[in-house]
Write a protein that binds this DNA or RNA. Structure first.
Lengths: 206, 206
DNA sequence: ATATACAAACAGGTCGGTTTGTTTTTATGA
DNA sequence: TCATAAAAACAAACCGACCTGTTTGTATAT
């Protein structure tokens, strides 16, 4: 007879689900998709394999649910950061520094990279993830349009300029897997700021 | 008794090795690293599993060798393209179009992406691939410096500007896995050309 | 009591590596 | 030059480990 605090079913479910999703993201981050197994996730989460299959019957259910949470967190985080910029509490430079730091050192980018690459060879997974990405990009673009104004919208809109910047970050993060070269990335980051600054400036008090 | 043309051992080896490496790249491209197995590679190559283990004892030997070939091919391909630009047989716009087309539709980018992501969770693989990437980047930078001149080298050098462009391509290609949106990428490509053109111009007759 | 949450063992399949055996080419020496 | 030993290339079966999904059973909450 074990001593357990009495919890409602919803509380038990929510707790177990959170443990499983956190463990999934952590596993993707640490060992990659290829080495992420449902058994490993359950072990990390500290729940039994039966509990895992009960809440998420298949591996894909885990992945998709974890992705959903991950994307939502990142979108709100980015919007918060952009809000700081609009409020004048964050400089243009610091804004880019913060995004780059999040991409390189946060859980978000590499976990999603693992999932995206896995989806390339898995039709069903791709089908399930595509709408999540579309939604994420839409939220990004809303943030960009709200936070920056273009110098000459006919040439490069703020939306396009910031999408370019995000793609640079993506590309740099991929590079960083095999080339951890601080000086190189600082150089690129400075250049990126300069290049983007030609076409766009922060919209104060958006 | 089968009728076989007599071949030297070196010829037999070379043929089998080529078949295996081509099959490896093809498999990475089509089904991804996670679904790429040594048995599958041997089957694609049309050689026995014994032949495969003879020439490449482990899975990593196959991957590393295939990567080496892939990188070499891409570097020379890019240098050829840059040569066309320097010779005036290719416009600035067409040069970028060609690179983007190669990244999105060629075997190169996605195969290497699979390998890079796999290396993130595999210390030994990462250790073996890191020098290959370093070498590739060096060849890139040599090409950039030879092919473009900076408008204001103190702000953004040609080397940095083109590295930025390559990172944009990387990022866009990752996006394209889940978002195959022709119009979006055309828009981004046009903006990239415009943004880079501010800082750099082709060095005619390099 | 009954549905939900959790636990643990099982089954079919695949993968990577190893081992054992066969064929083809090359080197050797009378 | 030609028989033959040695080496390289190739073939196929096997093995232990792991993974996903399933099933059967138990505890907890409603």
């Amino acid at each position: 007879m074990t001593v357990t605090t009495r919890r409602t079913q919803d509380q038990r479910s929510a707790k177990t689900r959170r443990l499983l999703l956190d463990a999934t993201i952590q596993s993707l981050m640490e060992v990659g998709y290829a080495n992420t197994s449902t058994a490993g996730i359950a072990k990390r989460a500290g729940v039994s394999r039966g509990a895992q299959t009960h809440h998420y019957p298949g591996k894909m259910d885990l992945i998709v649910a974890a992705t959903e949470e991950m994307f939502a967190n990142f979108a709100t985080g980015l919007e918060t950061l952009a809000g700081e910029l609009r409020a004048g509490r964050l400089s243009y430079d610091a804004f880019f520094d913060a995004i780059w730091d999040g991409v390189l050192n946060g859980d978000w980018f590499y976990s999603s990279l693992e999932i995206i690459v896995a989806a390339r060879g898995d039709d069903e997974l791709r089908r399930q993830l595509a709408p999540l990405i579309l939604d994420l990009h839409e939220r990004f673009e809303t943030t960009w349009s709200r936070t920056f104004v273009a110098v000459d919208p006919a040439v490069v809109s703020s939306r396009v300029a910031l999408n370019l910047a995000m793609n640079v970050f993506r590309g740099m993060a991929v590079q960083a897997v095999l080339r951890r070269d601080e000086a190189y990335f600082l150089e690129m980051l400075a250049a990126l700021k300069a290049v983007i600054a030609v076409h766009v400036r922060p919209a104060e008090n958006g």
